[in-house]
Every structure is written in structure tokens, then in C-alpha cells.
Simulated scan of single mutants.
Amino acid sequence: MDIPLTFLTDDILREMDISQNNYFLLNKENARDGRNHYFHFEVSLLDFKTLVRQYRYLGND
């Protein structure tokens, strides 16, 4: 993948929200080391009216 993850942040968060997952996967085909990487987050709903969520990075494996 030629695009750094920092430029895909909005797309990653949108997909996590749609799928209701608290992680995203960088698959081995797109990783430089050829391994799957899971990035885990804690998700908090801040406002029920506007459905604003806060994501806190917990780490990866």
C-alpha cells in the first residue's frame, strides 16, 4: 500500500463505526512485514443525540 495510514484515518473510523468493531485489521498483503496487524480501540459514546463517539487507542498485536 502506498498511502500511509495517517491519511486513511477518516475511512478507517467510518468503517469501524459502520461495522460496530473496536478494532481494524491491516492485512498481511498490505503490511511491509507480511503479517496481519490488529489495532484495538476503546469506543465511548459521548452524545446519544448526535452519536458522537470517542476512540482511544489501546495497542496492537
Rank of each mutant, 00 (worst) to 15 (best):
Y38E: 04
L8S: 14
D10L: 07
L46P: 00
H37E: 00
D17A: 11
D11H: 08
T50H: 08
E29F: 15
T9Q: 13
L8F: 08
I18R: 10
N27A: 12
K28Q: 15
L25N: 05
I18N: 08
R14A: 15
T50D: 10
L51F: 07
E29H: 13
F39S: 01
H37D: 03
I18K: 14
H37V: 01
F39G: 01
Q54V: 03
R32Q: 09
L26P: 06
R56I: 06
L58D: 04
L51Y: 04
I18S: 07
N30A: 13
R14D: 15
R32L: 12
F24T: 10
T6E: 14
H40R: 03
D33F: 02
Q20R: 11
T9A: 14
F7I: 11
V43G: 05
L5T: 05
A31F: 04
N36K: 06
E15T: 13
H37C: 00
V43R: 10
Y55T: 01
I12N: 06
R14M: 13
R14E: 12
V52M: 09
P4G: 10
G34Q: 00
R32S: 13
K49S: 12
F48H: 06
V52P: 00
E42T: 08
L5H: 06
L58A: 06
K28T: 13
M1L: 14
F41S: 01
G59F: 02
H40A: 02
D61Y: 04
F7L: 13
S19C: 10
K28G: 10
D10Q: 14
D11L: 10
H37N: 00
P4T: 08
L5C: 10
N27G: 11
N36W: 01
G34T: 03
F39Q: 02
F7Y: 13
V43A: 02
E42V: 05
K28W: 08
L8D: 09
D47G: 02
L5Y: 09
K28P: 05
N30V: 09
D11M: 11
A31L: 06
R56Q: 13
L8A: 15
D10S: 14
Y23T: 00
L5I: 07
F39C: 02
F48E: 11
L8E: 12
H37A: 02
Q54T: 00
M16G: 09
Q54E: 09
F7A: 14
L8K: 13
K28M: 15
L58V: 03
N60I: 01
M1P: 06
Q20M: 07
A31N: 12
D2Y: 04
H40I: 03
D47K: 06
Y57A: 00
L13N: 05
P4Q: 07
R32I: 08
L51K: 15
D2N: 12
G34H: 05
S44A: 12
F7E: 14
Y55W: 05
I18Y: 10
L45W: 03
R35Y: 11
Y57C: 00
R14I: 11
E29G: 13
G34E: 02
F24S: 06
L46G: 00
F39D: 03
Y38H: 06
T6N: 13
I3T: 12
L45P: 03
L58W: 01
H37T: 01
F7T: 12
N30M: 12
D17H: 11
M1W: 06
S19T: 11
G59K: 04
M16W: 00
N30T: 06
Q54F: 08
E42M: 09
N27C: 14
D61N: 09
